[in-house]
Design a protein around this nucleic acid. Sequence first.
DNA 1: TTAGTGACGCTACG
DNA 2: CGTAGCGTCA
Length: 770
Amino acid sequence: MKVNITETTDTCKKINWDDMLDSELLDTIPTNKELKGNNTILDKGLHNKNVIHENTGQKRKSKNTELKVKKVRSDSNEEIKQQVPTETCKQGNNKNNHFRKQKYTKAIKNWLSNLEPPTEDITDLDNIVNDSKSSVDIIQQNTHNSHKEKLVIEKTSKTNKKVVQAQLANKDGIMKFSKPQPNAEDTKNINEAVETKPKEKKVKKFVAPIKSQIPVKDITYELHTLDEDNLDDHREGLHEIINIEIIAVLIYSNGFCQLNSHHTDGTCTPDGIIVNSDDMFYCFKGAGQKIKEALKCLLENNTVICYGAQNILSYLKTHLQMDRINPKIYDAKIGASLLEPDNPPENFSDVQKLLSFSAQYTVATECTLQKAAWYMSLLKQCWAKLYAMLAEDNLWKVFVEIEMKLLPIIAGMECRGLCIDMSKLKSMEEVLLNRMKAVEQQCYKAAGKVFQINSAVQVRAILYDELQLDAKCNVRIRETLCKGAKSTSETMLRSLMNEHPLPKLIMEYRHLHKAHATFLAGIAQHIKDGVVRPTWVQTAAATGRIASNNPNLQAIPKAPFDCVMFPEAGDTDNSQLMFRSIYVSRPGFSLVAADFRHVECRVFAHAAADAGLLRALADHPDLFRALAQHWLKKPEAEIVPEERERTKRLVYASLYGAGTRKLMEILDVDYQQALQVAASFNSSAADLCKLAMILSEEQLRTSSPPVDAHLLLQIHDELVWEVNDLHVDRAAAIIKQAMEGCGQWCGMTVPLPVAISTGKDWGSMQTLEN
DNA sequence: TTAGTGACGCTACG
DNA sequence: CGTAGCGTCA
């Protein structure tokens, strides 16, 4: 294995990997297809892994070959798991470990004898194998944690340590070869696989596949680099570019462009923008006045096709201060993810695969700009294909009317960012940390020892093995999804909390810890100059929703946060924290939030035409309260907020899961059709929210006199603006009107009431009547 | 010995 | 149901 690794790296040096497309890379790996054929789930796994490695640049090449390896290994693990039924968690784990160890050592032997003859190593290895075996046995007798196992190995074979580590490091690769054959029927296949894989290993010093697959043409694109000085020389040519489709692609400081940006890492900054019309390529660099003007003219007078429009727009905004530019822009990335929402392409080569497009030739060049130009010509061809496919699937309208109009809005949100009140953050953190320490100590006291409260494994051991709380409470503990171990989730802890103080304390600690790690410390990482700028991802969700990350501002708790969950008699410190209140408006501005009143439910009611739900929506201002009242059979006044929240969660969960079944009943259609209806309802809810953004933004822009308002957040059915203090009332009215008009635009028969509230910080918003 | 990684568990939001 | 994120463990 070691040998192989070095070989790979050596080979890597010779090949110009940067020239290679991922599709080409993948095609050269023979077992890939076989594996794909074997198991579709694995196929998906492979894809994901591939995606993950996409950004790691140089690393990727060596890993690429490992992908399959890892995949196979995980597969074998699964099979092993199936073979060894887990009983109680500890024993099961040990057994499992033991089993794996045996497999592993056996594998090493087999593998070594198959390949190189490292005589020394083999003898060493035998020792190690024996040692580890015996140590495992010892462990099994002890039935204690696995740290000892490691210790034993280290002690007995100190001199062989390096060998062991080398083997351990390669264990992934080795496991693959010794993969057991659990089913007799598969034996043949596996034999084949075993045969092909080592073969492939040796073949691994493959020649650059790009050369064998795609002809290289010696083409030089006509490319001009424009800066402030030589712009005038090309002014005539630029002026002729009007009313046609142009391609625009960002070029980064390391020479790569958006279309092969998987070679870039986070440190790369946009360095310029290449524009292509017909056969001419212009590369605009710098931020001079003339450049700005020329670029602006170019972008506004033509239809712009690009890949990753958000990056381009934010480049224009931040580097060139072109704020209110609103070109007619088509983004191939988003178009492609519309075509396949369940599995959106992650990079340009994915898009090509999706369109079953393959480059006819590549260019022989070391010049990065020429390379970028070649990529752009590919993009141009892809776009033609994409356009046809979008039109064919009736997605063109959605693409143009919704997704593309959303682009500038989202770019605006990203640039603006949200102001943070640091002092508030600090003080909250202090309160939280103090409380956490106290709870932590109480936990140790209650458990009788020190343990890691965050570790589900340790908590499980204490709760169920030592204290045997499940037996005492006579509760059946739900099992976790993957390993089937006893769950320590909140609902389970709740059912145990009367028996022992520990569950309560654990719940509270988790609560506090999560809050601190995610909503204070987690947010703090992303603050720059008192502003936090999340990334908004349009293409992430299969449901068509927009997702936010770094940080995820959509998940900031809405409800006030109790520092003390179970206030005791003597406890006076029942301070509450509002995590949303650390987000404040800029001086001279106010925050304005507009909230659809349970859109999801309304859209569902509309889609299913459920009379009862429609009536409930019409009669009750607060649907969840009404539902809670109905289900719990309590008078409405007695519903406490907690119950309401739980009802809400239940409704959301069942809306998607059980929603399909209900639709099936109501509409009297079969499962497939119901699924379709449900999907369409899902996406229409998401589209409704997007539409709300577009329409209200449009109204605000076009209103006269102009309103100084900036969209900051989209939390699915809530929109948050930052509005100049002087314009608040007017903006609120415009927003409300625009949003309530969305329903009609979509043909909804159910009214969509919108609640508007304003305030200086996001935590304390006052509802605005009228 | 350590840093990186993928799998898993839990829980915020809607 | 499906986003994101944090933490542990091997």
